[in-house]
Computed example of a mutant assay.
Amino acid sequence: MKIFRLLSLAIVFFLSTSFVFALGVNPPRFELEGAPGDTINRVIEVSNQDDFPIELTILQENLTTKETGFPTEINTDLPDNISLKKWIHVNNDNNKILLEANETRAIPFQIIIPEDAEPGGKYAYILFAYESKGQVTQKFRLASMLLLNVEGEIINEGNLESFETVMIDEDKKAHKQSFFSKLPVIFSLKYKNTGNTHMKPGGKVEIFNIFGTQLKNIGTESILNSQGVRTNTIIVDYLPINDNQGNVIANSLRHFMFQWNGEVFQEQDNAGTKHIKFKGSPFGYYTAKLTLTDMNEQPTIQEISIIIIPWQDILLYGGSLILFLAIARKYQKWSRKRLEDEIRKQLQANK
């Protein structure tokens, strides 16, 4: 049962006055290829991980993504030769299933690619929808994402739109900034896919100090299995780009954000579990070097400057030092005057 909690696109917990339930799907994502006229057969497993039965409705919807990479439905009706949802056929009566308590069900489905299908990336969900039947009607939907690449004239093109460091304001909006008083330093990278199929840009950001020395142990990188589930995390000398290997779908822009938190180290608790921690307070001028890889033959390389001056600490410690020096100087004057008074009294007593 635990494996479904790890592999699900989402585990949905639904709360009401009388019950709680959880669902999972496996796999959360299919990445497929086929030619016009092909039929692709696959299976989705859906799991009811609670102790009461639920009825689900199976739906298909075309999708696109937002800049964050979060998928969203396409509400307009697409032509048959590019509408993946019209090619999906679920082998189930009435598109409804009743899952008993703690039951896992395999749901076969087919994708029948039409002969006149346009080449390139096509995207859709297979959705499992539930509607509660209590006093208050509540709905949820759990999905598995399908990314299909139709063979033909495939265009793999994309470009770096921007790479910069930013500050996040109270409204959670990003503003370009290269001067920081402390960590973390937040990086913003926008990549535009101008081709007709999905791509997975990757790469790294290395950081160098004013002397050109590369900083070590500044990032963590995920080790993923074939289904995109993290199996391990390693410490690396760079900040990885697109660490979870997310796709940028055709003709879309995706915004990646990541941050430099300091030097990475592992700390083990009393139970023997290792935790990722950060330390260090960088000061001065740094260069961040981006090496971006995609389907292009040559990587894209770009450098930006970062200045870190902990002015608040400087003001605090500087103010404390000034106060200490002022007190010391005043004490010195008082001590000198007191000594002069003592000497004067002794001279007068000796007359």
Rank of each mutant, 00 (worst) to 15 (best):
102 N>H: 10
311 W>V: 15
214 Q>V: 12
124 A>W: 01
344 R>P: 00
166 V>N: 05
325 L>Y: 05
305 S>H: 07
127 L>V: 03
343 I>P: 02
105 R>S: 07
294 D>P: 00
350 N>I: 08
210 I>A: 14
326 A>M: 15
308 I>D: 05
103 E>K: 14
142 L>C: 00
250 A>F: 02
230 R>Q: 12
101 A>S: 13
256 F>K: 04
103 E>T: 08
171 D>K: 14
109 F>H: 02
288 A>K: 03
301 I>K: 12
287 T>Y: 01
223 I>T: 10
64 T>A: 03
307 I>A: 04
296 N>M: 09
33 E>S: 13
104 T>W: 00
6 L>I: 14
31 E>G: 02
265 F>Y: 08
270 N>C: 03
234 I>V: 13
290 L>F: 01
141 R>P: 01
127 L>P: 00
27 P>I: 13
310 P>W: 08
275 H>G: 00
219 G>C: 04
23 L>I: 13
96 K>E: 08
52 F>R: 14
182 K>E: 14
349 A>P: 00
153 E>H: 09
50 D>Y: 02
74 I>D: 01
220 T>P: 01
81 N>E: 05
99 L>I: 07
326 A>V: 15
119 P>R: 10
266 Q>D: 01
257 M>C: 01
57 T>R: 08
229 V>T: 14
287 T>Q: 13
101 A>V: 08
19 F>P: 00
86 K>R: 13
140 F>L: 12
172 K>T: 07
303 E>V: 06
148 L>A: 10
243 D>F: 00
177 Q>V: 07
210 I>T: 08
33 E>P: 07
157 E>K: 11
25 V>G: 06
329 R>Q: 11
181 S>W: 03
81 N>S: 04
136 V>P: 03
156 N>E: 15
195 G>H: 03
117 A>L: 04
234 I>S: 04
106 A>P: 09
261 N>I: 04
231 T>V: 12
337 K>T: 11
170 E>W: 02
247 N>W: 05
186 I>R: 08
113 I>M: 02
119 P>D: 13
301 I>C: 08
200 K>Q: 14
224 L>N: 08
206 E>F: 02
167 M>D: 09
253 L>M: 10
343 I>H: 03
110 Q>L: 07
268 Q>F: 00
36 P>D: 08
31 E>I: 15
63 L>C: 07
69 G>H: 06
117 A>S: 06
125 Y>M: 05
53 P>M: 11
218 I>V: 08
240 P>Y: 04
162 S>D: 11
234 I>D: 06
154 I>V: 09
212 G>A: 09
233 T>W: 02
147 L>V: 08
10 A>D: 11
267 E>C: 02
177 Q>I: 08
267 E>A: 01
49 Q>W: 03
227 Q>T: 12
16 S>R: 04
144 S>G: 05
184 P>C: 09
258 F>T: 11
199 M>C: 10
36 P>K: 12
116 D>E: 14
204 K>S: 15
183 L>E: 05
39 T>C: 11
338 R>F: 07
328 A>R: 09
236 V>L: 06
193 N>C: 09
348 Q>M: 10
27 P>D: 14
245 Q>K: 09
15 L>M: 11
29 R>S: 02
139 K>R: 09
26 N>E: 12
20 V>W: 01
204 K>L: 10
41 N>H: 12
24 G>F: 04
196 N>S: 13
233 T>V: 12
94 N>K: 11
112 I>D: 07
59 L>Q: 10
245 Q>M: 07
42 R>D: 09
